[in-house]
Design a binder for these strands. Structure first.
Length: 429
DNA sequence: GAGACTTGTCGTGATACAGA
DNA sequence: TCTGTATCACGACAAGTCTC
C-alpha cells in the first residue's frame, strides 16, 4: 500500500467517525478584494463565502484569440459521437451528451498546484474551468488567497461542477482528478467528481498525434502550430505561489493564470479537432500513423468496421514502405497489418488474415518484434490446419523457432515442429 | 472418445509518460 | 519527485474443434 493510499484510508475512517476537520476554517488574513483585483478578477459569492474568481473570454469578438479560426472551428466540431470515442471504456449507462448540443454540460478542467506529490501540504491554488459558449471560449478560475480558505474554494468548485456532466482534462485521470478528490477528502467534504464522465485527452491525443506528444505544450506546437511566448514553465509555478505567500504580492500569479487559461483553450481546441477526426473517419486522417491511431480509438469503442477501414488506409498510405524505407513508415505498416490480421482472424476470415500475415513477413523487417513473431506462428497454424500443407507449415515453424526467445513460446513451437516432422516422416514411409 | 490443438480472454508485471 | 494510466509481453485457463 502506498503512503497516499494509507492516508486516504485514514481520512475516510476519520470522516466516517465524525472527527473534526484537521484544518478548521479560519478567517483569511489577506484583503480578498485587493487580491482579486490585482489578478484582474473579482470576489464572487460561493456556498461557503466569497471567493476570488478571474474570468476571461476568447474567440468571437471578445478578448484574445490565441488560435484564431481554430477556436470557432473546434466549437462546432465537438460531437456526441466524438466524445463517446474519446471517453473510451469503463462508463456504464447512457452517455450524457446530447446530439443537438454536445457542448452543453461539458467542462474543461485544469489545476495549478503547489507541487506534484499530492501530499497533505500540497494544494491547488488555481482551479480553472473552461466551456464553449457559441463560438467563444469562457474561462473562469478560482484562486486560493491562503491555505485557510481552501474549504471555501472547494465548496465553490463543487457548485461549479454540479451543473456539468463531463470533465475534459489532460492527464486528469492520473493527476487533476485524484488530486482534487484528495483535497475534498482532506477537508471532510463530499467529492462531486465520481458522478461525472471524464474524458482524459492525453491518451487519445497520443494515438492521434503520435506517442511523443511532448505534453500539452508539445501538442500545441506540433498540432496547432502555436508557440507560447513568456509562458511560465511548470516547474516555476509552485515557487511563484510560495513567493506570494511570503511577500503578500499576488502580481507574479498573473503569469500562472495566463498559463492555466492557455492550457484550457488548447484543451478545448484539441478536443474539437479530435472529435472532428472521429466523425470524419479514415479519409480525414493526414498520415498513416494517424489512421492507425484512429483505428485503435474506434476498436476500443467497439467500432470494428471503422477500425478496419483505418488500418486499411494506414496500409495503403505506406504501400511503398520496405525495410530500407523510413523506420516510422515500416513500423506503422507492420502494426496496421498485424491489427488487420487479428481482426480478420476474429471474424474467421482466415484466408484474409493469412494474406495480411504474409504481407507483414514480406516487409522484410527482422522478425524479432511481436508482430513478425505472431505472423510466423499464425502462418504455421494456417498452413498446417487449413491449407493441409505440412511442408509449408514446417518452414514457418522453423523460422518461428529461431525468433522465439521465451521458454514457453519456444516449447510451443517445438511441439509443432515435432508433430509436423513426424507427420511428414509417416507420409514418406 | 480421449487427448491435442486453436482461439480468445483475463490477470500480472514491467515500462514509459504525463501532470506542477 | 510521485502516482495513475495505457500499453505490451507473457502465462494460465476455458471453450470449442479437430485428430488419431
Amino acid at each position: 500500500m502506498t503512503d497516499l493510499s494509507r492516508l486516504r484510508d485514514v481520512l475516510r475512517g476519520a470522516k466516517r467517525s465524525g472527527a473534526t476537520p484537521m484544518l478548521a476554517p479560519q478567517t483569511p488574513s489577506v484583503d480578498l478584494e485587493a487580491f482579486a483585483a490585482v489578478l484582474g478578477g473579482a470576489l464572487e459569492d460561493g456556498p461557503s463565502g466569497p471567493c476570488p474568481v478571474v474570468r476571461w473570454w476568447c474567440g468571437g469578438d471578445a478578448g484574445d484569440a490565441p488560435y484564431g479560426d481554430q477556436l470557432g472551428a473546434a466549437s462546432s466540431t465537438i460531437s456526441a459521437a466524438g466524445l463517446r470515442a474519446l471517453c473510451g471504456s469503463g462508463h456504464e449507462g447512457e452517455p450524457p451528451w446530447s446530439d443537438s448540443d454536445p457542448r452543453s454540460g461539458l467542462l474543461f478542467f485544469d489545476l495549478e498546484t503547489t507541487g506534484l506529490s499530492g501530499g497533505s501540504g500540497t494544494v491547488a491554488f488555481v482551479v480553472g474551468f473552461g466551456c464553449f459558449v457559441g463560438s467563444r471560449f469562457h474561462v473562469w478560475q478560482f484562486v486560493l488567497p491562503s491555505f485557510a480558505t481552501e474549504r471555501r474554494l472547494l465548496a465553490a468548485v463543487t457548485a461549479a461542477v454540479s451543473r456539468a456532466h463531463t470533465l475534459v482534462t489532460f492527464n486528469g485521470k492520473s493527476f487533476d482528478v485524484p488530486f482534487m478528490e484528495m483535497r475534498w477528502l482532506y477537508q471532510r467534504l463530499e467529492t462531486p467528481l465520481p458522478a461525472l464522465r471524464h474524458v482524459d485527452l492525453l491518451h487519445p491525443a497520443r494515438r492521434l498525434w503520435g506517442p511523443e506528444t511532448g505534453g500539452l505544450g508539445g501538442l500545441e506546437h506540433r498540432v496547432l502550430g502555436f508557440r507560447r511566448d513568456d509562458d511560465v514553465p511548470g516547474f516555476e509555478i509552485p515557487a511563484r505561489y510560495f513567493d506570494y505567500l511570503r511577500s503578500g504580492n499576488p502580481r507574479p500569479l498573473r503569469g500562472v493564470l495566463a498559463h492555466n487559461q492557455l492550457d484550457l483553450v488548447s484543451l478545448g481546441v484539441l478536443t474539437g479537432m479530435a472529435c472532428d477526426l472521429v466523425d470524419r473517419g479514415a479519409l480525414a486522417t493526414g498520415s498513416a500513423r494517424q489512421s492507425l491511431g484512429l483505428g485503435r480509438l474506434y476498436a476500443r469503442g467497439g467500432r470494428e468496421a471503422e477500425a478496419l477501414g483505418c488500418y486499411e488506409r494506414a496500409v495503403a498510405l505506406t504501400s511503398g514502405a520496405r525495410r530500407t524505407s523510413k523506420v516510422d513508415a515500416v513500423a506503422v505498416r507492420a502494426e496496421a497489418l498485424y491489427r488487420l490480421a487479428l481482426a480478420c482472424r476474429r471474424q474467421r476470415r482466415h484466408s484474409d488474415a493469412a494474406r495480411y500475415w504474409q504481407t507483414l513477413i514480406d516487409l522484410g523487417r527482422r522478425p524479432t518484434g511481436v508482430f513478425e513473431r505472431e505472423a510466423l506462428r499464425a502462418l504455421a497454424v494456417h498452413h498446417e490446419h487449413r491449407l493441409k500443407d505440412p511442408e509449408g507449415a514446417l518452414t514457418f515453424a522453423r523460422r518461428a523457432y529461431t525468433v522465439e526467445y521465451t521458454a514457453g513460446r519456444r516449447r510451443e513451437v517445438q511441439r509443432r515442429l515435432t508433430r509436423l516432422e513426424r507427420r511428414l516422416a509417416n507420409e514418406t514411409n
